[in-house]
Design a protein around this nucleic acid. Sequence first.
DNA 1: ACAAGAAATGAATAATGATTCACTGTTTAA
DNA 2: TTAAACAGTGAATCATTATTCATTTCTTGT
Lengths: 210, 210
Amino acid sequence: MAYRETEKMRMRKAEARQRIVSCAYQCVAKSGFHSARVTTIAAMAGVATGTIYRHFESKEDLFAEIFRLATQREVDKVAEALSTQGDATVRLEAALRQFAERALRGPVMAWSLIAEPVDPKVEEERLAYRQAYAELFEKAISEGIEEGCIPEQDARQSSTCLVGAIAESLVGPLSPAQAASQAEPINDNYEPLVNSILRFCIQGLTGTRR
Amino acid sequence: MAYRETEKMRMRKAEARQRIVSCAYQCVAKSGFHSARVTTIAAMAGVATGTIYRHFESKEDLFAEIFRLATQREVDKVAEALSTQGDATVRLEAALRQFAERALRGPVMAWSLIAEPVDPKVEEERLAYRQAYAELFEKAISEGIEEGCIPEQDARQSSTCLVGAIAESLVGPLSPAQAASQAEPINDNYEPLVNSILRFCIQGLTGTRR
DNA sequence: ACAAGAAATGAATAATGATTCACTGTTTAA
DNA sequence: TTAAACAGTGAATCATTATTCATTTCTTGT
């Protein structure tokens, strides 16, 4: 035997893989899973099309990894916001703000994660993603119920409403504007919009006027 | 000239067109725009593939018409519910119930109308659809604000949250279950689910515990 | 420098599905 | 009954992309 995989090679391969992942991520963030082409990703990453298939079984597998990555970031941020000081309502508000602001800053990716139709393997990841959120919010809502700052309710169902209200608030604006406003970050000042959404969400949860 | 379109022919053509529309509608209702095949629709309608193109410029045009049709039904129902007796909150609740129940009864079509990615011409119809809802709910919310039963707020934004909360509550359950629960009507008893969603929505609007 | 093994390449292939169009069948008015 | 005009047909075409694989290029240990 004359060839043995060496550290240097392992590194180089890892770098290529990383570059592929990063470019795929950018493509998805720019226009969603559906329009992300394997060929384009390869070109961006400076490798041949076939090389993608040395690192990933299939497009689906690559995308599943992208989904997982993107998801992890989002869920972590929300979990972080939920684990700060304050009563459940305050923590939930912080978490929802985090969720909404991040979604508004990257609406295409947010839409891809929440609602874009994707292949089965990616859909599986989405199930995990939904459950991660559902569990996080559910836990916080349940804590709020125990603390007494949130009235009795189906925590899982409320969590779904929260995600939906926020998602629709950004998917709606996204759809028609697409070509026109996609180039720019749409709007610098999300504050009023986010406040408006949050007021609705928190009222929906607590039934207390804000 | 030896041939002139006669009433009989006009009728026959209209029937064929109607059959195409109806079959296309069924296909979309069963699995969304994306998986509705021109060939399948033609077969269902008992005509050749090419015949579809004698009645519609393109698949996109056919689908735009389907979207418009489906949309009209939904918007009409909501408008009807909004024009009954009672104060704004009561009317809104009736309308939201109508919206939610219909969506739950036909979740695939609901998802197609609300969030499925579609071609530009269909997307245009969606814009009109969104605006129709936005205007209906907005008007009712504004009336509620004048009546004093709903506090001051951005009516358009709230309307978006309403639609989102309901949509997500049915899209979520839809996604993973797909194959498994699509055969049956999922569940006969929507009452508790709908009540739960509505509580959240009305609280979100009014900030008053239900 | 060499040969064995691996990695990279990208043009060719395969699969899918909308759309076309040359042809066949029908309807109409004279 | 005939021919002009139209309607219907569906196999063939075109377009789009993921995926493959024979070939080339690079790495490594001797």
